[in-house]
């Protein structure tokens, strides 16, 4: 039994120690906003915040979490930065199929929390681990800059 702090709420889950957080969120807690893309931390679709940092939940064993707080796409908009990022995403009409965008938004929000005025190089560095097969990178970059100056 693990006790997890997810989006400000404590959740008890009875799952194997090596079960990645991704499947705990999706299949045990029914929080499907966090997506499965690759399972090997190559695509970033499963990105959530752990103690404020963007992590890939597909390779994050539930036993490695401890009491660090988890924030997912379902609640990232509760923070001022997350709300700004979501707003910029809508404003720039970033989304196409949208499947990767939960992860993109989580990565972008973590970036802006750490680096409020990122350069293009900062964006490259923080966002190149998040794949978008629809190819929305041009607008993601614009939206991050927009959120930074909002």
């Amino acid at each position: 039994m693990f006790s997890l702090s997810i989006n400000g709420q404590t959740q008890q889950v009875d799952v194997p120690a090596d079960m990645p957080l991704l499947w705990v969120l999706r299949d045990v807690l029914g929080m499907t906003g966090t997506k499965f893309g690759c399972g090997i931390a190559q695509c970033g679709a499963c990105t959530v915040h752990l103690g404020g940092a963007a992590v890939r939940s597909c390779l994050l064993p539930v036993s490695g979490i401890g009491d660090q707080p988890i924030v997912t796409i379902e609640a990232v908009g509760d923070s001022p930065t997350g709300a700004k990022v979501q707003h910029a995403w809508l404003d720039k009409e970033v989304v196409q199929c949208g499947y990767c965008q939960s992860g993109q938004i989580m990565s972008a929000t973590a970036l802006l929390n750490q680096t409020p005025k990122p350069t293009d190089a900062d964006i490259d560095s923080a966002m190149s681990g998040n794949i978008c097969r629809c190819g929305t990178y041009v607008r993601i970059r614009e939206a991050i800059h927009a959120a930074a100056s909002a």
Binding site: M31, T32, T34, G77, V95, G98, S102
Partner: peptide
């Protein structure tokens, strides 16, 4: 479709 795709 976008609003639902930015909040999960």
């Amino acid at each position: 479709d976008t609003p639902s795709k930015v909040n999960g």
